[in-house]
């Protein structure tokens, strides 16, 4: 039961920001940052550093020692004097990340999406999808100052506005669901728990 009361206190402390920025909110905010940062550090230890490095080394497999040491070098970034050493471990995962991005987004996003737009313009919907994609693309075309291109991108902006309108609607829907669940908690688990 205490847990629910503690959770209810912090929920109301955050909601108090609606009235205005106040010390209770600031206190709750800093407690949140402290607890969550401490949580992330402990989780990183238990999910990677311990099982993939420490336990394996204790079992005699010394291979993970190398990334482990490189990881410790990474921590040197916190000391300004030795910051340059941290560049090498960072280089590895920046390089891997960059290459993965290039492959993934070419195959899964570019080619697949372009192929998905190669529809026979027989049905109205297909025609609208093709037209919409092409005109929206011209809106993001900055290379040429072209007279009738600007008319085409005017249609494109229309499609973009409809899309952002739909995104506005779904965002309102999503945020309301969050609020509903907080009220659900306050009503049934906190207050309900008391009756």
């Amino acid at each position: 039961m205490i847990g629910t009361w503690v959770a209810a206190f912090f929920t109301l402390a955050i909601f108090s920001f609606l009235y205005r920025d106040n010390p209770i909110y600031r206190l709750a905010e800093h407690i949140f940052i402290g607890i969550s940062t401490g949580y992330y550090i402990a989780v990183q230890w238990h999910s990677v550093v311990k099982p993939n490095v420490v336990d394996k080394v204790l079992l005699g497999d010394y291979l993970p020692l190398i990334p482990g040491v490189l990881g410790l070098l990474l921590l040197l970034r916190l000391i300004p004097k030795y910051q340059w050493i941290a560049r090498y471990p960072i280089a590895i995962y920046i390089g891997v990340g960059a290459a993965l991005n290039m492959i993934q987004y070419t195959q899964g996003f570019l080619i697949a999406q372009i192929q998905g737009t190669m529809l026979s313009p027989t049905s109205i919907n297909n025609l609208l999808i093709i037209l919409g994609t092409l005109t929206s693309l011209t809106y993001f075309f900055f290379a040429l100052e072209h007279k009738h291109l600007s008319k085409v991108s005017k249609i494109g902006i229309g499609f973009l506005m409809l899309s952002f309108g739909a995104a506005y609607g779904t965002t309102v829907m999503g945020r309301l669901s969050l609020l509903i669940s907080r009220f659900d908690f306050l009503l049934f688990e906190w207050l309900g728990g008391m009756f």
């Binding site: 570019l110 372009i114 192929q115 737009t117 190669m118 529809l119 026979s120 313009p121 027989t122 093709i130 994609t133 092409l134 693309l137 011209t138």
Partner: peptide
């Protein structure tokens, strides 16, 4: 890509 889409549409047609 815009050109490819147009060609693809014609091909599909």
């Amino acid at each position: 890509f815009g050109l490819l889409i147009v060609l693809g549409t014609l091909a599909a047609w």
